[in-house]
């Protein structure tokens, strides 16, 4: 509590003062490129994104075939460059998680953790790293030790042992928050390495009350009325049970991320968004690009091209042009 008092009394959920021209949900190659083109067309553009390594490109270790980038770089580095380029043209990037949207209202409303944002046009570029299935026990014990928000619930686990499952910067940041309360944080990384910036990995491993398990798959959350432990499969040692009273889950999967849309847009049988040739969805002023569409090759350059195409289509509509303009300097 004392810490939160020092955090200031921010008007986080106050009514939005600014109406953006475009809000892009998701800052991967599709979203970042859309923002680059939109901002260059002098449209006020906000990108809301969960973090550099929250999506497929940010998690990719090495990229060697992105046109114009001959050196081998990490996906996160490539994405960082795209964002910097977009920012140079005036796009704003906000690290936040979108909880829900109202796409039928005018302006469109985007509800994120830090506030409500409104825009004339919304672009959905959330990618396809949503979870496909829950861990056994997860749904039954939600709110009884299972949580998706360490900052919300960390204080309930003061002096107790907890587990964090995930491998991204989001998971690490949440685990670091938990170290202030929990006696021990068991960090269950499903991959052989953490997929996060080096400084965050160092900060995590330097914590005396964090135990890092690499290649650890969360199999089951144990307990009846309360979480009492987790069953974990370790690549090196096989199955173990850790006695914890809280489990914080930040795992990813391979499904298009559309849950925050609340059924406002039709989905294909495989859960993907559907668009026309100009990346328009069924709702006016709502576009979708990138892996959330599933109907294209999962390559950064293809997603980027879709972002650019959608941006030009949006510019045409907002500027009431009859045709797409390919060079806004004229």
């Amino acid at each position: 509590m004392a810490d939160s008092l020092e955090l200031a009394f921010a008007l986080n959920n106050a009514a939005p003062e600014q109406i953006w021209d475009v809000i892009v949900v998701g800052g991967g190659p599709a979203g970042a490129t859309a923002a680059l083109y939109l901002a260059r067309a002098d449209l006020k553009t906000l990108v809301i994104d969960r973090g550099l390594t929250a999506g497929a490109l940010g998690l990719t270790g090495r990229i060697a075939n992105y046109p114009g980038v001959p050196e081998e770089i990490s996906g996160a580095e490539l994405l960082y460059r795209m964002r910097q380029q977009a920012e140079r043209f005036g796009a704003t990037f906000l690290q936040d998680k979108v909880q829900s949207v109202d796409l039928e209202s005018d302006p469109k409303l985007v509800f994120a953790n830090t506030g409500t944002y409104s825009a004339r046009v919304a672009v959905i570029a959330t990618g396809s790293m949503g979870r496909s299935q829950r861990v056994k026990g997860e749904d039954e014990l939600l709110g009884r030790g299972v949580s998706y928000c360490a900052t919300c619930d960390g204080a309930f686990f003061r002096g107790q042992e907890v587990a964090v499952a995930g491998n991204t910067d989001e998971a690490i940041e949440e685990a670091l928050f938990l170290t202030r309360f929990a006696s021990r944080v068991h960090f269950l990384c499903p991959t052989p390495q953490l997929k996060a910036p080096e400084h965050l990995v160092h900060e995590l491993t330097a914590q005396p009350n964090v135990k890092l398990y690499l290649g650890a798959t969360l199999r089951e959350i144990l307990g009846t009325d309360q979480v009492t432990g987790v069953r974990v499969n370790l690549r090196s040692e096989g199955e173990i049970v850790l006695p914890v009273s809280g489990v914080f889950v930040y795992l990813q999967g391979g499904r298009p991320i559309t849950d925050f849309l609340g059924g406002q847009l039709p989905l294909s049988e495989t859960g993907c968004l559907q668009v026309d040739a100009e990346f328009r969805t069924a709702l006016p002023g709502v576009y979708a690009v990138g892996d959330v569409l599933c109907n294209h090759i999962k390559q950064a350059v293809v997603a980027a091209a879709e972002g650019a195409s959608a941006a030009m289509s949006i510019e045409k509509v907002l500027r009431r042009r009859k045709q797409i303009a390919v060079d806004w300097s004229k």
């Binding site: 008092l5 959920n13 909880q99 619930d153």
Partner: peptide, 13 residues
């Protein structure tokens, strides 16, 4: 609620 919960204001309001 807790003061550090970004989801809570929506539920309260």
């Amino acid at each position: 609620v807790t003061p550090t919960c970004p989801y809570c204001p929506r539920a309260v309001l």
